[in-house]
Amino acid sequence: MHAFDYAAASTVRGALDLAGPGSAFLAGGTTLVDLMKLDVLTPDRVIDVNALPLKGIRLHDGALRIGALERMSDVAAHPVVRSVHPVISKALLLSASGQVRNMASIGGNLMQRTRCDYFRDVTSACNKRRPGSGCPALTGVNRNHAVLGTSDSCVATHASDVAVAFVALDAQVVLRSKDGDRVAPLEEFYRLPGSTPDRENVLGPGELIAEVVVPVLPWARHSTYLKIRDRQSYEFALTSVAAAVDVKRGVVQDVRLAAGGVAAKPWRLRAVEEALKGGVAIERTFAEAAESAVDGARPLAHNAFKTALLKRTIVRALLDAAGAR
């Protein structure tokens, strides 16, 4: 592991004062410490932010507000989260392992790095890790890679489950700097790789995620998170879908859909949502609407199955969320 300075901050201001080029904030450590051991990340300074007052889960002003330092397991088990937005809890409980959920923070979950094996192996080229060095995944082992939102520079997926639920629910992130707070929709917080896959989000160097804000949506209690993976637990998604649907008299009034495991960032499925609205809530409607989910998809040699799998995952998630079976 690369040598670094360690400093613990007790205030947001103190943490931001310590931050600079080459520094990294340490919360749960499940991404940062892991990638530091692999020399994928080599910060000169690690700023422990665990003592910062960025905790708390509360309902305020029509929104569920989750402090960035809340742990995945605490958020998943929180009665307000479970009753207002059960899909958040479901997505969290289908992520990682018990130990990792106990450690990992919500802010850190949103900042986690891709599981692309070429990114995690410093002996490989990787445009995300070493800009301009190339992307071996384009022609290499790419079964787990993305089919949507990719570029000729990078085909990595975004690994978070809960971010998929958040994006479906129009969540925003509060970004805090010395200049104050700014708020960004989570969907726009993430950048597509384009020709700069090393720039994954809009976070500035002197900024940190303070809070996630999820608007309350009463009918979104009818929701699910369906995750398809190679084993039953402790595995990343091949495909996943967060779905919430409002059905009245058998007709879809409103719907929220986002997908994971298939795209360069948590992927909102707006075209599918539009195709569903006003439709009869039956399997055929869902299957027809799901067709547009893969418009523009760019399958690779080993992951072409993801386009069909994504459509089926959408249909099953909608059936579950609509209580149609």
Partner: peptide
């Protein structure tokens, strides 16, 4: 040493964690 195997599981403030991914200074 990657938080994947659980062999290093210990309680930290009464919650099980993978001790391999906790920086020693965090235990202060």
């Amino acid at each position: 040493e990657q938080g994947e195997c659980g062999s290093c599981t210990v309680y930290l403030d009464n919650v099980p964690v993978c001790a391999c991914l906790v920086a020693a200074g965090q235990a202060q």
